[in-house]
Deep mutational scan, measured.
Amino acid sequence: TRVETATETAWISLVTALHLVLGLNAVLGLLLLRWQFPAHYRRLRHALW
């Protein structure tokens, strides 16, 4: 059971790390998009709101 718990903890930390990386990538991607295409982003925002 100790090995199972260790594997579980490893999986949880792995999934958490993946989520963090994906979240960071999403934020960075959005920031890059805003920086690269400000006009396009503004138009998109007007369409959404």
Rank of each mutant, 00 (worst) to 15 (best):
N25T: 05
I12D: 00
T1A: 11
R43D: 02
R2A: 13
G23F: 13
L32I: 11
V3R: 01
Q36Y: 15
L30F: 13
L33F: 12
W49N: 00
L22V: 14
N25A: 03
A6K: 11
R2W: 14
L18N: 00
L22I: 14
R42F: 07
S13L: 14
T1G: 07
A10N: 01
V3S: 04
H19K: 04
L18C: 00
L30S: 06
R43G: 02
L44S: 01
V21M: 14
N25L: 04
I12V: 13
T7H: 13
V3P: 06
L28E: 01
V27S: 04
R2T: 15
V15M: 15
L33S: 02
A10H: 01
V3I: 13
G23R: 02
L28T: 09
W11P: 03
T9A: 13
I12L: 09
R43P: 10
V15T: 04
Q36A: 15
S13I: 14
V3F: 08
I12G: 03
T16K: 01
H19M: 13
R34E: 02
A6T: 04
V27E: 06
W49H: 00
H46C: 07
T16I: 10
L18T: 00
G23Q: 05
T9L: 10
A17I: 11
W11H: 07
L30A: 12
H19A: 15
G23A: 15
L28R: 02
T16V: 14
H40W: 13
L31R: 06
A39E: 12
A6C: 11
G29Y: 01
T9Y: 06
L33Y: 09
P38T: 06
R34D: 10
S13H: 07
H19P: 00
L18W: 01
H40Q: 12
W11N: 07
V27D: 06
V27C: 11
E8W: 06
E4L: 10
A39W: 09
L31K: 03
W35R: 15
N25C: 01
S13P: 06
R42E: 13
L14D: 00
P38W: 02
L18K: 01
I12K: 09
Y41C: 13
H40D: 00
T7L: 08
L33D: 04
P38C: 06
Y41L: 11
A39K: 07
L20K: 03
A17F: 09
P38G: 10
L20Q: 03
W49P: 00
I12E: 09
E8G: 03
I12C: 03
L48D: 00
A26W: 10
L33K: 03
R34A: 04
R45E: 08
E8H: 03
V3H: 04
T9K: 07
L48T: 03
T7E: 07
T1C: 11
V21A: 15
T7A: 15
L28M: 13
A39M: 12
L48C: 13
E8K: 05
V21R: 01
A6H: 04
W35S: 15
A17M: 09
L22F: 06
H46I: 09
Q36L: 12
R45N: 09
L28H: 10
V21Q: 02
W11I: 12
H19G: 15
P38S: 08
A10Q: 06
W35E: 10
A39L: 12
R45M: 09
R2H: 14
F37T: 00
N25R: 04
H46T: 13
G29D: 02
T5R: 01
V21W: 01
N25G: 09
L22N: 01
